[in-house]
């Protein structure tokens, strides 16, 4: 899922200092799960910023609230009155949530409290590792289920490179060499012949390098007829 991390407190404190009425809005989805922006983190940030303001003798009003999923307009709309009442919205959702609020209320200031992030897998409680970079053309069926774009430092399609040593990557000896892992996995699956097949250079047009991507399901879209007359949220 999307994994984000709270910006350093000092940075956030500086960001919000000039604003009187600050609403801190969190989210119950991805950022709650990765412990960055759920209700508890919102309450924590509210308290922390209040203490900071107290310490520096600033009069600021902080209010915290949470929506179910901040990237969905319907849920953001539910807290419109709080947003309109703010001098600053500090979003504790991922950037998607922060931008959704900003797009819906362009006159309001919306700042991010988190740094988004990675597509991360919870390796264990509290540890999320990046295993996908959203290249848009998944090939893990040819690499034993291990993504070399995300997990190889050089994103090689035909690894390993000469820097692979004892199953570790030369860039950082703590990092596993993805291609060593791929080799071992394919061996386990009796599909080692795959590693001998040479993959052509990657077509990166499906990744972010090809420009901003929009995914569409035409059959799910509402027709004009359906959209007409509904509340102007869409």
């Amino acid at each position: 899922m999307i994994v984000a991390k709270r910006k350093p407190m000092a940075e956030i404190a500086e960001m919000v200092a000039p604003y009187k009425k600050v609403k801190i809005i969190g989210c119950r989805s991805c950022v709650a799960i990765c412990l960055a922006g759920g209700e508890k983190e919102v309450k924590t940030l509210v308290s922390a910023l209040r203490l900071k303001a107290k310490k520096e003798g600033r009069r600021q009003e902080f209010e915290g609230l949470v929506v179910e999923r901040q990237c969905e307009k319907e849920w953001v709309k539910e807290v419109e009155d709080r947003i309109m009442d703010s001098d600053l919205v500090l979003s504790m959702a991922c950037s998607l949530g922060a931008q959704t609020i900003g797009d819906m209320y362009p006159k309001k200031l919306v700042f991010p409290a988190l740094n988004t992030g990675i597509f991360g897998v919870p390796e264990e409680q509290g540890v999320w590792s990046e295993k996908c970079v959203g290249c848009g053309n998944c090939i893990i069926h040819t690499t034993g289920g291990i993504c070399p774009i995300a997990r190889c430092a050089k994103s090689m399609l035909n690894g390993p490179c000469g820097g692979s040593s004892n199953g570790k990557c030369e860039v950082n000896l703590e990092v596993d060499c993805a291609w060593y892992a791929i080799h071992e996995r394919l061996k386990l699956q009796n599909r080692l012949e795959l590693i001998e097949q040479v993959s052509p250079p990657k077509d990166w047009s499906t990744s972010h390098s090809g420009g901003r991507r929009v995914y569409v399901r035409e059959d799910a879209r509402l027709t004009q007829y359906q959209k007409k007359g509904r509340e102007a949220v869409r």
Binding site: P8, M9, A10, A13, T44, A48, L51, K52, K55
Partner: peptide
Amino acid sequence: STLADLGI
């Protein structure tokens, strides 16, 4: 650590 980051 939160307090330390805030200079408290």
